[in-house]
Design a protein around this nucleic acid. Sequence first.
RNA 1: GGCCCCAUCGUCUAGUCAGGUCUAGGACACCGGCCUUUCACGCCGAUAACACGGGUUCGAAUCCCGUUGGGGUCACCA
Length: 526
Amino acid sequence: METMVRTRFAPSPTGYLHIGGVRTALYNWLYAKQHQGQFILRIDDTDQARNVEAALAPILAGFRWLGLDWDEGPEIGGPHGPYFQSQRKENYQQAVQTLLDKGFAYRDYSRTEEIQAERELAKEEKRSYIYDRKWMAETEEDAKRFEAEGRQGVVRLKMPREGECKFHDLVRGDVSFPWKSEQDMVIQKADGSCLYHLATVVDDHDFEITHVIRAEEHLPNTPRQIFIAQGLGYDLPEYAHVPYVAEPGSKSKLSKRKIRKYLKNPDFKKLYDQGEVIAQQIGLEITSDDFNPVLVDFYREVGFLPAAILNALLLLGWAYDDQREDFTLEEMIELFTLQKVNSAPASFDPAKMQAFQERYMSRVPLPQMIELTRPYLEKAKLYPTAPTQEEELYLSHVIKAAGDRLKVAGDILEFEDFFVKPEDLTYDEKAFEKRLQKPDDAEPLLKEFTAILKELEPFTEENLEKALKDFVAEKEIKIGQIIHALRVAVTGKVKGFGMFETLAILGKQTCLERIEFTLNKLVSTN
RNA sequence: GGCCCCAUCGUCUAGUCAGGUCUAGGACACCGGCCUUUCACGCCGAUAACACGGGUUCGAAUCCCGUUGGGGUCACCA
């Protein structure tokens, strides 16, 4: 029997989930699922003074929302736990001791300032810096002597200084690094705590990780990790370094902090603005860069579909063939291959993300659409938490009429005019002026047609259309002469659903109330 | 700067490993048009790329070398 494939994603508790991270996680998840393997979540908090639990919550929430479930990890545990590096310190201490015993590491008593000075000197002289191991304690006596000087010891890796570290990467093929360009990395600090490289290698081994699929920035870290693994006598995992996700229109790494810069990109701006409008309507405070299309939370808050995001992210650096772009989760699992992951970084494309979202959204069936949009109306206080059957039916009419206009769930708030009282209706002022105040015939036509509306039974889309068309024919006017005025009078807006659909959904009483309200407003503003 | 990685339309990419079927295909965006009471959708169309220079070869986007450009990484961070 072959060994089970086990992959992992190891976020450090930063308080947010970056979409680049999600893509890496997705690839790990897909690879594991495809091989009937397992996907493990491990928390890299070796050096976290902050509140890990609070900083982790949004990350786990993001994973849950996206449906990237983990087989072992925080909240669910597992046979290899704990899954927090901060709780596995003994393992690292033990590993350090082994490395020391076997001569793969040494105690070093140099001071940070000393090393720093050496490094700077080397930089000035334009040569690469290699530590001369001046403060390496080769014997107990050395150690005691250095300690007597008041020095504190760290543990460094005794890296080879000749030859090359060669390994095979599932994405990039064969890669090699000269050992001499490697530093004697510190693996244990003066305070006794252990550092990332050591921890990650020990954990990957303890967790029986078979495939380390991670971002490209870890590629230069691989030789030292291989060195540690070999020193510890571990079998090496397979490595796959996937490129990082780049900024829109550039090849730099996408970063949460550079949002100001990205906002200059029209597509990014559009995505952000769309979200901002919704955020304001639901009373979400935008106080920091955390409301950010670089982060997964943004999409959740605005009402994107997880499947759309996953699909868009899947294609950021991977393609199945020259045609197919839509993949269900099952299809992704079946068809994903590391071999087809591009080795060049892919720029995040906000417009493409939107396009996927729109396509997926257009396929959402009505009942699910109701569930998706309701929370937004509730948060905006436009809809009761416990609606009557009638109210639910009304909402379903609005959603049906909105159709493709709902690009994200939060877009339902664009149609707030269907949920407010006449006096709370906000008018597009320019439209009010252009369609109602300016044309001389707007008011009389509206009044005349209102009289017809009053008598219209039943108040259906078909009847409304016939009524207006008959009216237009009889008055020998163009439909444009009344329909725009009517729209503004009833919805306050220039754009919206089909006119007759709008009227029918609102119902006779509301329509008449609003027209009356508008006519009064018209009088008072003239 | 050292080490490493990368290079096809504006963007994501197919094609590159096994050179000809590529006057380079698709998608998104953009632009133009159609539909239309507005908006959105939809439909039709257009523009648009093998970074450059040498080789190898009958033939190169595809193989080799170099150049240029872009990027990652060089902590007692992860």
